[in-house]
Computed example of a mutant assay.
Amino acid sequence: MTATATATPGNRGILRVNPVAKLAAALLLAGVLVLTIDWVSAAVALACELVLFFWAGMSFRIFVLRTLPVWLAAPAAGLTTLLYGQAAGAEYWQFGLIHITDGSVELAVATLLRVLAIGLPAVVLFVTVDPTDLADGLGQVVRLPARFVLGGLAALRLVGLLMEDWRALERARRARGIADRGVIRRLSGQAFALLVLSIRRGSKLATAMEARGFGGTTTRTWARPSDFGRREVALIGLGLFVGALAVAVSVATGSWNFVLG
């Protein structure tokens, strides 16, 4: 299984960037945006991101398909905040626990933009990440324990197999005539069977990895070097610049609303 987008001449540049840099840039930008609840900082960050997405190398179709959950989640979060957010200023409509005021409208807009500003770059960056490259980067650049990194890589590689097992169980149960009715009962029984199968496969995989020395305390060698150079520094610098610009504009306009203040 791989989570990467199809390599095209336009996105080879972003594919060559070390996954650790992509992770750092996404976390850096998200960390800045979660410090405040205001629409100005989120709008500035989102505007910069939309411009930078043109150089990400993803086709418009792939961009829309991969980021569709974010586009659906953002309005839902904004609507919930609009209806149940903090009441402040003039009240436009009220019914029971639902109230729409100046404060809830402003908070809803800020929430919608923050979800987009945090979610879109995360999806765009991680859609071009190969799990093996990420494990190499975490082990060689971040210096995380090899046992933890390789165990996580093995688990991630089994996600695709888990989906295949689910489809195989569904076909087998249908062939035996035990999946024709009772949706809740069928899904619960199939989920339990998948859980048992996953535990057994995980135990076998753990034993096999231990037998091959993955649990040893000696320093491991890596088949592929994980380079961290100017491209990675530039990407992290872009994330830092966008975050700093969003904060600067928010503070300058008086919109900065520190969440811990």
Rank of each mutant, 00 (worst) to 15 (best):
A108T: 13
A193I: 12
A193V: 09
F60A: 12
A76L: 13
R66N: 04
M209L: 15
Y84W: 11
L72A: 11
D102Q: 03
S226T: 05
L240P: 05
V32D: 13
D102Y: 03
W256M: 02
A30M: 15
V115Q: 09
A175C: 03
V251N: 07
V249R: 12
W93F: 09
T8N: 05
F214S: 07
A43S: 11
E49P: 08
R16G: 06
D38V: 10
T67P: 01
L46E: 03
T217P: 14
V105W: 08
D136H: 12
V249N: 01
V142Q: 03
L144V: 06
L23G: 05
V32Y: 14
F63A: 03
P131S: 07
M163H: 10
N18K: 01
G189W: 06
R174D: 10
V32Q: 06
D102I: 01
F95N: 15
W39P: 09
L125F: 08
I184P: 00
D130G: 03
T80D: 13
L68A: 13
T36H: 14
S59H: 00
S198M: 14
R224F: 06
L35K: 14
A252Q: 10
A45E: 01
W71Y: 02
M1Y: 02
L29A: 10
T221L: 06
A108V: 04
V149S: 03
R231A: 09
V115F: 07
I37E: 15
W71R: 08
D102N: 00
A179G: 15
A77W: 08
F60E: 09
L153T: 00
V40R: 08
A191Q: 07
R12M: 04
V20P: 01
M1W: 01
V70P: 08
P9G: 13
S59M: 00
F148G: 06
